[in-house]
Design a protein around this nucleic acid. Sequence first.
DNA 1: CTAATAGTGTCTATAAGACACTATTTG
DNA 2: CAAATAGTGTCTTATAGACACTATTAG
Lengths: 235, 235
Amino acid sequence: MSTSTNSARKPPPLICTVDLVLLTLRDEQLQVLLLKRERDPFAGALALPGGYVHADQDQGCEDAAHRVLRDKAGLEGLYLEQLATFSGPGRDPRGWSVSVAYVALVDAGRLARRALPAPGCSWLPVDRLPALAFDHGHIVEAAVARVRSKSLYSSLPAHLCPEPFTLPELHAVYQAVLGESVNPVSFRRKMDELDILDAVTGAKRAEGPHRPAQLYRLRKEFRQRLRLVGRGLKA
Amino acid sequence: MSTSTNSARKPPPLICTVDLVLLTLRDEQLQVLLLKRERDPFAGALALPGGYVHADQDQGCEDAAHRVLRDKAGLEGLYLEQLATFSGPGRDPRGWSVSVAYVALVDAGRLARRALPAPGCSWLPVDRLPALAFDHGHIVEAAVARVRSKSLYSSLPAHLCPEPFTLPELHAVYQAVLGESVNPVSFRRKMDELDILDAVTGAKRAEGPHRPAQLYRLRKEFRQRLRLVGRGLKA
DNA sequence: CTAATAGTGTCTATAAGACACTATTTG
DNA sequence: CAAATAGTGTCTTATAGACACTATTAG
């Protein structure tokens, strides 16, 4: 195992983790799951759920991310996508670290039905966060930017909407994620173009006295992935 | 340093590297820099330039990527962006590995002026690659998809065009990267909208007997980053 | 003058936004 | 019937593509 160039020398020990930005929509706001840290570094501060990659059991960082979701949030089968990798000597006081960050989405209905809310874990609106542990504030920022940007031209917000849902409900979800109103006609056209919905036979009754809205579910093919279109709702 | 939960146990040793997809445009084709591996694993096969992250000198994986570019390709100050992170037990036979992949762009003129082409390094068209070492074939695929997609709505291809350049030359670069013709009027409008070019006083003479084209350079602000617009040239 | 490419003016096509209209429910 | 929201038809507006036109050079 001799090395002939400096770039082939034994790697120094690195901290390698995954961190999860688990987002949901509550009170018409994007909210992120945060855990209160019990140990140093940053004991007492809020941090993203995360954990070491387990070389003995994970088939990749995405596996580790799913494991963290299961162990720390009790959730499985969520939409998950890699966000970016954050690294450097300063982000974790224990040493040079690499964190592969993922974004996961869960609808509020599923959260309500879930077994354990778990102690020390809390949902906070992404636009009014306190200082977080490590560089997790920046990671959340990047995640929210990604989610908002993709919401303009993809089926992403559907993963935040409890099923079955009506088009007006999904419309409201898009608006809440984007933080601005979306033209209802353009919205319906975009949903048509995306072609991600299955109509459920039977209409949902609205609260007041008026025409009920058709119920839909996400087509199976798009439960774990997005449908993208070339052009979005706005620029 | 005792651990109270399984997720806080000492991390197992991981191989953590950066890999670079360095792209250029030659013969109207996107080409990628590949190095012939001298050592196992995959001795003799072509691989992306890469290297271990050096915790003692790198301020982050991006630093390591710049270092690899400098040491293995003799290039500095290129446009560089993080692509994605690839990981798992199978991609490197030496063990569970994490590779943070970056895309870098260099114009062919700069390559021609560069000191060393270096032995064992070659440029190959991305659309006709042999089997590569590790999962580098997939990494190149992802990089090319990213570059083509971003070329529709950003200044990215300008980094592949030797300066100073004319608009027809830049137009040709966009077309070569996208692999399809681009409406010339739309192209000029998009360049106007991007607002990334400085006209150089003095016109370039074309080969044949005809009106010479205005020369441009990339504005300084956009040498190391992209300008994005809301909507692109096509869907 | 012609030939050739650079660059523009403007019409057409497409897709998003605006807005009015119809549809369906409860009371 | 009125009231309220669901859903559609269609006009307007914005922007990309098509195409013809002018501009500028060499010979």
